[in-house]
C-alpha cells in the first residue's frame, strides 16, 4: 500500500499556491479595462462611465453627464506627452468647428502638474474646458493606459469611438462628423 503524504508539505504547497494566486489576482487588477473596445468591436456602443472631476486650476467639479445631449470628444492628455502636443492644435480646431453644432472637446489632464498643464494650455491656446484627473479615474473608468487617448461620446452618452493614441483629421471626420448630423 502506498504511504500517505505527510500533511506538512501539502499545507506548504497549498499556501504557496494561494500566494501565487493572490499575486496573479493583483496583477490582473492592474490591467486596464478594455470593455469599451470590445463593445465597439462587436458594433455596440456602451454607456460612458460616470465621470466627475475638478476643473483644472480649481473652481468646482464637472460631470460628463452635464454635457448629455452634446457630442463630446473626451481627450486624456498630459503636458509632458509629445503626441499630445502634436494633436492639441487639431483638437482646438475641431472644438471651434463643433461648437455651433452641438459638439465640443473636453480635455482631462492626467498624471500632470497643474502649473505645467496650465502652461501647456496657454502655449497652444486651448479654449475647450479642462479637467484634472488626480485619482486615476481615466484608468479605472475608461482604461486609459497611454496618453493621449480620446473617446467620442454621442448625444445619448454612449461611447461611439475610441483612439488609444493621437487622433488625426481622418479619425475626427469619420467618427465625429456623423454624430453631429441632426438625427
Amino acid at each position: 500500500m502506498r504511504r500517505a503524504l505527510s500533511p506538512v508539505p501539502i499545507a506548504i504547497v497549498c499556501v504557496l499556491l494561494a500566494l501565487m494566486a493572490l499575486l496573479a489576482y493583483g496583477l490582473a487588477q492592474n490591467e486596464p479595462d478594455r470593455g469599451v473596445d470590445e463593445a465597439l468591436a462587436r458594433g455596440e456602443r456602451s454607456p460612458a462611465a460616470a465621470l466627475e472631476l475638478p476643473k483644472l486650476g480649481g473652481g468646482g467639479n464637472v460631470a460628463l453627464a452635464d454635457y448629455r445631449g452634446q457630442v463630446v470628444v473626451l481627450n486624456f492628455w498630459a503636458s509632458w506627452c509629445k503626441p499630445c502636443k502634436d494633436e492639441s492644435p487639431l483638437l482646438e480646431r475641431w472644438h471651434r468647428r463643433m461648437k455651433g453644432r452641438g459638439g465640443m472637446v473636453l480635455g482631462v489632464a492626467m498624471y500632470d502638474v497643474t502649473g505645467r498643464a496650465q502652461d501647456f494650455i496657454d502655449e497652444y491656446g486651448l479654449t475647450y474646458p479642462m479637467l484634472k484627473d488626480d485619482e486615476d479615474e481615466g484608468l479605472e473608468k475608461f482604461g486609459v493606459a497611454q496618453l493621449p487617448e480620446t473617446f467620442v461620446i454621442d448625444r445619448r452618452g454612449r461611447i461611439a469611438a475610441v483612439a488609444r493614441g493621437p487622433v488625426d483629421d481622418a479619425f475626427m471626420r469619420s467618427n465625429v462628423v456623423p454624430l453631429l448630423e441632426p438625427s
Binding site: 498630459a78 509632458w80 506627452c81 509629445k82 505645467r116
Partner: peptide, 9 residues
Amino acid sequence: PQAQDERAY
C-alpha cells in the same frame, strides 16, 4: 517622460 517631469517637479 512623465518620470522626468515628476523628478523636475
